[in-house]
Amino acid sequence: MKSENKNQSRRSFLKVTSLTGGGMMIGISWFANLIPNEAMAHVADNNNWVQLNGFIKITPDNQVKIFNPNPEFGTNVMTSLPMMVNEELEADWSKVKVEMGDYDTPRFKSQFTGGSRAMAMAWMPLRTAGATARLMLMQAAANEWGVPVNELSVSKGTVMHKGSGKAATYGELATAAAKLPKPEKVALKKPGEFTLLGTPQKNKVGKEIVSGQSLFTMDYQVEGMLIAMVIHPPAFGMQLKSFDASEALKMPGIKDVFEFQVYKDGYVKAGFDTRTFNRLIAVVGNSTWEVINARKKVVAEWEPIQTTKEPVMARGGRRDEVIPAGLESTDEHFAADA
């Protein structure tokens, strides 16, 4: 079951990487029998990123990276939110790289995909992040050249001084700028002054999507990773009574079959902790198909639930949510009398 030629393909992969300067490539996983996310690790980012704030990193050789704070599920926040930052930062948008931020809500202020709130919640903080970084870069240039900052202008990631003809890229200024204090107040552009916001811009992740890159959780793989599936009761209103995994455990590639409880007894659920079936059977093995086959061999016995009350923290207070017993049907719901 081991993939062959792993080392050889890893070498060929690295060769291709160096040819294209580590940038986005098409069909990278194709060169390899290698695990895509391992591949990502091999294209380790050796650049000297200078962080100007939570949203912006710049290298001395003038690469600009903007972090998107909000989880992306298809509304294209990977493009529109970095656009907000860059409107004020004024780096060269065509060359700006965007990266999904990890979970770090204090750094990103808000990481909330839901309620159609992405644009509204990001509107002030992201433009402010762009503007403060730009001011710091301009201040670094002003210090270097001994001129007042209000004589400077910026365009496409370059700070310029008209009087002296001096110019420096953001990359050249980033290291000095990062050491400066963060400006307390910045003026933001008014809509009439926007040059990027309000203009149609293509998806920054488009190439990765159409070439089938490893982008999704389903695609994520690391060496030694196991595949797991869970078996839940066959109906709402049922729960696990007992199970026999002896046949499943004999199936090829299967590592373990066990019962587990998702939430502890008495755990007070918050608004997004919804989970009906709290006791599940996990089937764990080496590969997806082996687990799919083995789970069919698990013999489980189920029993009806009793009406229960579960503690929930929602809409501003703790209450008990009633989970009624019974096997419900659509017909009964629509027969209900208001």
């Binding site: 999904m100 990890d102 999704f216 959780t217």
Partner: peptide, 10 residues
Amino acid sequence: EMKLARMGGG
């Protein structure tokens, strides 16, 4: 520690 993968819809 949590990486936020692109979601195939939500």
